[in-house]
């Protein structure tokens, strides 16, 4: 079994193009997902059952089903309905890219909501009481006390979720998108050299993972200035 180095080098340019798409999926979904997660969190924490229960069900469904199925439901399933085809969202839903972003955002939104909820619950109860004693309103306590502390607590878990999101982008290749994995699969289909190509792709993901971890590590360090070591 030979290890064809020239093949790897020759394929690199195409794989780099794939990185562009991978990163677009990552950043877009992470951003939308985060906004969604905050909304879900507030719903979940609410005392009104018609807000907290739907939020709970949403997270339950999206965390309990495979990402692949979620993609298939959106990509294959939604175009089935005339009402979708005629709706405003159709230009987005028609494209695999749009479907992928939506699927990723909905999915990461559910996970991050749970992470944030864990963070909020992790804030020392005494701090809430101090806030109350100082006559701060509920929203003031949430914005100035709970949120900043919860963010710091959840950073490690959140960075893990971003990495999971990165890995999930690889599923874009199942709906014809040319992300890193998509490009790799195409090249392998032509060249029958799975080891060289897929391992190169893996290395690309590992580098991206390392970059994300390092970035978060720096951010965590900064936010933990005031924490007992």
């Amino acid at each position: 079994m030979t290890f064809d180095l020239y093949l790897i080098i020759g394929s690199l340019p195409k794989m780099f193009e794939g990185i562009g798409l991978t990163l677009q999926l990552l950043f877009l979904s992470a951003f939308i997902g985060l906004i969604l997660a905050v909304i879900l969190l507030l719903m979940r924490l609410s005392l009104r059952w018609y807000l907290s229960i739907p939020a709970f069900l949403y997270t339950y469904v999206f965390r309990g089903t495979p990402m692949l199925i979620q993609i298939f439901v959106i990509y294959y399933g939604l175009p089935q309905f005339k009402s979708i085809q005629q709706s405003v969202l159709w230009p987005i839903l028609r494209e695999p890219f749009g479907c992928m972003v939506i699927a990723l955002s909905l999915n990461t939104g559910a996970y991050v909501a749970e992470i944030l909820r864990g963070g909020v619950l992790g804030v020392d109860k005494g701090l809430h009481e101090a806030g109350k004693a100082l006559a701060l309103t509920t929203s003031q306590r949430f914005i100035y006390i709970t949120a900043p502390i919860a963010v710091r607590i959840t950073l490690p878990a959140y960075s893990n979720d971003v990495i999971s999101l990165l890995k999930a982008t690889a599923l874009a290749s199942t709906v014809t998108l040319m992300d890193v994995t998509g490009v790799a699969r195409t090249i392998v289909a032509k060249t029958f050299a799975p080891y060289e190509i897929f391992i190169s792709a893996a290395i690309i993901y590992l580098v991206l993972t390392w970059l994300i971890q390092t970035g978060f590590g720096l951010f965590e360090k900064r936010m933990s200035r005031y924490v007992k070591q």
Binding site: L166, A168, A170, T174, T181, A184, A202, Y205, T209
Partner: peptide
Amino acid sequence: RGTPELLV
């Protein structure tokens, strides 16, 4: 932990 499951 850094490689997509699909790729593996």
